[in-house]
Design a binder for these strands. Structure first.
Lengths: 207, 207
DNA sequence: GTCTATAGCTGGATAGAC
DNA sequence: GTCTATCCAGCTATAGAC
């Protein structure tokens, strides 16, 4: 098992092609469409190479998840340094691109125990990063931490963006616009009108 | 296809046993564990009977989803007639039993287009029922419908309960208790302290 | 209605040549 | 590193006996 574990480099062209093919297949047809044969066809290589590079299918999934999680982590750190971190965080969590793949991984984790721990660990890391960065910011906005604990508001933002995305997939949108309006009104009350900065624009196109 | 479509009765012992086995397998091991062979083994019948009763695997899933959705619909209607409908709705959506199976169906719908429409239709039905029942109630509580549109609050409750359940599966609970406390405080402000009534107790054990 | 038997396919994974 | 070839398992679905 786990033959030829890649070094820290991880920059093989074939390896990257397999990860890209996995991501594309998961987004287009769901994780169930990801088979070694279809990957090989799409990446233009042989299916045996999946085992050479990743050992098992679980290894493949975890490698892909980490690649995406590390990218999101970088985007999160950028957002939290924005002059309007609440706005930046809200826009980041609402971003479709990272959400779609995450939903596939959540579904996958239902019966792939190996990646469940991986997702949990990164989720905790994300939450803690947000909490450390925003606790003081929210207090600075005059928010009573007893009445509105920072952690509760962060969970709320994540919950809403994730849920709206789920329902979108089912063509359900009753109340969505109203809820988004309420949330953005409350963010505006704390942080003022959204002012796109060069830094934000950069973070949006880079991350 | 779809041989021997059951009549309105749907009360065959074997058919029910197959549905029960499907539900149990989905909850215990995820929908991927639901194969005709494992179903047959669990229900103590032959795997060919799946096709006799449901035509295809999709037919089986849809039949199970509808059975659960109709039960939930009945529970929702009861909850909305409670003297404290907000409390009753919150507790209903937080209930684990219906949530766990729903999550599996959401995952399943990612690559089973047939049941996607089914879930969407029922979701819209649920949302509209809640909206019709609670719009006047919320106005009666003195809530400004311009500032806090009923639909936005209903989506919020659904989003939070669903999201907390998802994260629970990954052993992530940072901020959960805080958010629940905030929500229940706000419900309390509108509807007063939770008073379990006989009707609520009945709905809890029946539905 | 329920069974046995099996066709027909697809998948994960491995061995070994180059 | 990449390939061919293959083993073996598991699945959906159907045919047909009872």
């Amino acid at each position: 098992m786990a033959p030829a574990r890649r070094s820290v480099v991880d920059d093989s062209v074939t390896r990257t092609a397999l990860l890209d093919a996995t991501e594309a297949l998961m987004l287009e047809e769901g994780y169930a469409a990801v088979t070694t044969r279809r990957l090989a066809q799409r990446a233009g290589v042989n299916n045996g190479l999946v085992y050479y590079y990743f050992g098992t299918m679980d290894g493949l999934y975890i490698a892909l998840f980490r690649r995406g999680a590390e990218r999101s982590l970088a985007r999160l750190k950028e957002a939290l340094q924005s002059p309007q971190p609440l706005w930046a965080l809200w826009e980041l969590t609402r971003d479709f691109s990272s959400n779609a793949l995450t939903m596939e991984f959540i579904a996958l984790a239902n019966h792939r125990k190996a990646i469940r721990a991986e997702i949990g660990a990164y989720s905790r890391k994300f939450r803690m990063l947000q909490l450390e960065a925003l606790s003081d910011v929210l207090a600075g906005y005059g928010l009573d931490p007893q009445r509105w604990p920072p952690a509760s508001l962060l969970v709320l933002l994540s919950a809403v963006s994730r849920f709206l995305h789920i329902e979108d997939a089912f063509d359900v949108d009753i109340g969505h616009a109203e809820l988004v309006a309420v949330i953005e009104r409350e963010i505006r009350a704390l942080e003022g009108e959204r002012r796109p900065t060069e830094q934000d624009a950069l973070a949006g196109s880079t991350g």
